[in-house]
Design a protein around this nucleic acid. Structure first.
Lengths: 213, 213
DNA sequence: TCTAAATGATCGACGCGTCAGTCAGGCGTG
DNA sequence: CACGCCTGACTGACGCGTCGATCATTTAGA
């Protein structure tokens, strides 16, 4: 398409629509958002939305892309200046914690996209493309730590699978208001995973010692 | 609220509706299922559905309850005759693996309910009630293993949080068709978690050794 | 420089299909 | 006959996507 082409010219409106759409979808849910609602926030009309997007579902797809890209760039910037791999991993985790509205909304979008992907296999390739970025970020950081000699040589792929699974699962607990999972306990859990599987002194403390902050 | 009351009399129709509704919701998604669709499968009319359920969303809620109850009973039966706590835990995990259509559908329902709960906090109490059953099952099994002396004394609550988070996250990967997560690798990952955190020889093998099937 | 045509973005109302929920009556059983 | 279960056509609302009209901006010609 002409995304890159018109990079200077007039992508404003299209981006404005996406920027308005994604938090709306995150908060109310895709199926409860009306094209009219998006138009209203943009101060525009439904016709304009359809001028830029063939149908409503195209808005969802592109809104996810928009939101994922945003987060990915944010992550890249935050990590770049950190050399130590363990600190990088901690920073990555910290940015995934559903503490603020922004991150909570991003998780909401993911959750909805998981549901839609589960129901409609056509979305799988899109989903996996996006998800791989996050998986790769973890995996590469593990390799970096092993090169730096601060992680032991656990299989990076298997570890990335474990850490991301636990992250996703924990985030769900928080978003659904589970009484026994807080942002703090999520952080602690993920740090424990890192230390238990990548720490140089194998199995020093698994879950037993986690009283102190 | 005459569930228990009419337990003997004529809950057939109501149960038949739920039994028809839940796989339909699992496969197509709640928002894509029409009351008419449910009625058609039951060989009945839309009026009958509304005779037993005030609104469509009541069908969703009750369908989840139906599906969760079913799974819970199935679990209880499968576990009862197993004495060894580790084998119990493995059996629990085995029954959560999204291998067959039945379990995949159950995960689909959960995924959808997570999404709805995230969007509508009123559902939280229902969700948490259901989820606690699963959490408790893990926790009690850990305690049993510790009493049996085959698990070390890791905090059962923290461990249950970790195992269930990882389970949920892994299931999502499978349902969304992630290329790097299979039923086998999910099983292996969860077993590794058990051994790493509950095994008597702390940190014997974390993720490093998992080549063999 | 001024005017006119052309281009393309935007608008908002309407059409058409869809679907949850209703209602007035049918049917079978006790 | 009476009552509870069931029916399915109907309704009213609603929302997506379309379409002709409008408006702003640019280009072309004189």
């Amino acid at each position: 398409m002409n995304e890159a082409t018109e990079a200077r010219g007039k992508p404003d409106r299209r981006n404005a629509i996406l920027e308005a759409a994604w938090p709306l979808i995150a908060e109310r849910g895709y199926h409860h958002v009306r094209v009219q609602d998006i138009a209203a926030i943009c101060g525009t009309s439904t016709g304009t939305i359809h001028y830029y997007f063939p149908g409503k579902d195209d808005v969802l797809r592109e809104a996810l892309r928009f939101c994922v890209d945003q987060a990915f760039i944010r992550q890249g910037e935050a990590i770049r200046q950190i050399d130590n791999a363990r600190k990088r991993l901690l920073a990555l985790i910290e940015m995934q914690l559903p503490a603020g509205v922004q991150v909570r909304n991003e998780w909401s979008i993911w959750l909805q996209f998981w549901t839609e992907t589960c129901l409609n296999p056509e979305l799988r390739s899109i989903h996996n493309d996006f998800y791989d970025r996050w998986l790769d970020a973890v995996e590469r950081t593990v390799r970096r730590g092993q090169r730096q000699g601060i992680f032991r040589d656990t299989d990076p792929t298997l570890f990335a699978r474990l850490l991301t699974s636990a992250t996703d699962g924990a985030a769900i607990k928080i978003l659904t208001g589970a009484p026994n999972m807080t942002v703090d306990s999520m952080r602690q859990m993920l740090i424990n995973i890192i230390d238990a599987h990548l720490g140089l002194q194998p199995g020093a403390k698994s879950l037993a010692a986690s009283g102190a902050a």
